[in-house]
């Protein structure tokens, strides 16, 4: 993976976090203007919280027709916010880190997609997430994971 957006957020709700992340993608031209509405709507119906250890993670994404150019936004949250668990909207997850996935064509970006999920399954990677200093540090951690 060559590039990623990185944000440090202090927010009180998942909607605030998602709005800030979507704004970044919209303002830089990576996604269409309706991307934010789609993300918020989809998170209600098809939640994306994942109970990974030791920090909960969310992976919001929508249909690729709302994506102009592929990009991933990573947000580290100062305080966790509540997401519902993917596949089980009765279950709440305290989410500390969010990977927002904007992929133009998921099959083309399959390697990146798989790599990101391998990262989440890697305890050493997850334990280092709260010590990330900057974008190049994050990319280095991601690219160190073998696919």
């Amino acid at each position: 993976m060559k590039d990623i957006f990185m944000m440090n957020l202090t927010v009180g709700t998942k909607e605030q976090a998602l709005t800030a992340m979507c704004s970044m993608l919209i303002n830089t031209g990576y996604v269409t203007a309706d991307f934010m509405e789609e993300i918020l709507k989809r998170e209600q119906g098809f939640p994306t919280g994942l109970p990974v250890q030791p920090y909960g993670v969310a992976v919001p994404h929508v249909d690729s027709k709302h994506v102009i150019e592929s990009q991933v936004v990573f947000a580290a949250l100062k305080k966790p916010v509540v997401f519902q668990q993917m596949g089980n909207n009765q279950q709440n997850i305290d989410v500390s880190f969010i990977f927002m996935l904007a992929f133009r064509d998921p099959t083309e970006h399959l390697q990146h997609l798989q790599k990101l999920f391998l990262c989440l399954q890697d305890t050493a990677f997850m334990q280092q997430l709260n010590q990330i200093k900057n974008k190049s540090h994050l990319l280095q951690l991601i690219n160190n994971i073998e696919t």
Partner: peptide, 10 residues
Amino acid sequence: CGTGVATSTV
């Protein structure tokens, strides 16, 4: 999956 593109691909 919800979108048929991301998590189902993984």
